[in-house]
């Protein structure tokens, strides 16, 4: 393996140089905006527009972080150019964790069960039902928003965790689609042997399919977690109450306050930096597993 690798990867010095230069450029384009997020989060309000090219502002301040974390009282925060509304950072981040973890676990579990049925089990209308699942991917989400909002309200779930989680808790078409594609690529021999030994569907699913799909499920879990964490519109309309607001919604207050105003750039960038810490952590924790060994079979 190492032999073949070196043979395939043998490049001339020039090609290698160009490739590395392009890679470096790519990394710069990817990372520079993040540097700017961080730099802006340290910039005092009066310098935001006056030192637009400075790599670091001449005066640096941590007060934006203090405001986001609620360490600075409101009068002082307004004086520093912030908003009067405080972000209850600890509570908001807890809400985000509850919602994101809840959605991730249930969605991945139930979607993998459905994917198993679509990939492996034979039943009437299987292809039709699957086509129906996939076609809902194409319905503009704006169509779903209002009916779902009214439905969640009728269930008395407004301003609850369950209400925020509801639409994506049991499945998303994307998750079922994604996992089915992986399951189609799994060798059938193991399952067939298990069936021969008289194992039931449940055993086959838990003992064979889940372990074989672990990496794909992990990938989906990370995708689901990050999407749920960053979701804005739905948690905004369903969870307006302060005690239920997720972090992304809460940080929305740093956007436009009044028509024609300016966003609170410093507060917003400090908030964005802090809000990224958990998702970055997830990526670092699970990143290796996601990318190292997923086989993918595309469309079948």
């Amino acid at each position: 393996m190492s032999n073949s690798n070196s043979a395939l990867n043998k490049k001339t010095g020039l090609t290698k140089g160009i490739l590395w230069a392009l890679t470096a450029l790519l990394l710069f384009v990817t990372l520079f905006p993040f540097f700017w997020v961080f730099r802006t989060s340290l910039t005092p309000k009066s310098l935001i527009f006056t030192e637009p090219t400075a790599i670091m502002p001449s005066v640096r301040t941590w007060t934006h972080y203090g405001r986001v974390l609620g360490l600075i009282d409101r009068a002082r925060a307004i004086e520093l150019g912030g908003t009067g509304q405080s972000v209850n950072f600890g509570l908001n981040i807890l809400n985000s964790f509850i919602v994101s973890i809840g959605v991730t676990i249930f969605q991945v579990l139930f979607s993998s069960m459905a994917a198993f049925a679509f990939a492996r089990l034979k039943f009437r209308f299987r292809e039709m039902l699957f086509a129906l699942y996939v076609s809902t991917l194409m319905i503009p989400s704006i169509v779903m928003m209002l009916p779902n909002f009214v439905f969640v309200k009728d269930l008395h779930l407004l301003n609850t965790y369950l209400g925020i989680m509801a639409p994506t808790l049991l499945m998303t078409p994307f998750a079922v689609f994604f996992l089915r594609q992986f399951m189609l690529g799994i060798n059938r021999e193991l399952e067939e042997a298990a069936f021969l030994d008289g194992a039931g569907l449940g055993v086959v699913f838990w003992e064979i399919i889940i372990p074989l799909c672990a990496n794909a499920m992990m990938t989906l879990a990370v995708i689901t977690f990050i999407n749920t964490w960053n979701d804005y519109m739905w948690p905004l309309i369903v969870g307006k109450k302060e005690e239920i607001r997720t972090l992304t919604v809460a940080l929305g207050i740093f956007r436009l306050q009044t028509p024609q105003g300016q966003p609170d750039w410093g507060g917003m960038m400090a908030g964005a930096t802090l809000a990224m810490v958990p998702t970055l952590g997830i990526l670092i924790l699970f990143g290796r597993r996601i990318v190292n060994s997923i086989g993918f079979s595309g469309f079948r």
Binding site: F110, L132, Y133, T136, I139, A166, P167, L170, M171
Partner: peptide, 23 residues
Amino acid sequence: QGAGALLFLLPSLIGFAAFFIVP
């Protein structure tokens, strides 16, 4: 498998019907 499949599909079917098909 017909019956089994239904069991496996059930949770996702509920979500699918309530939050995708009905809307």
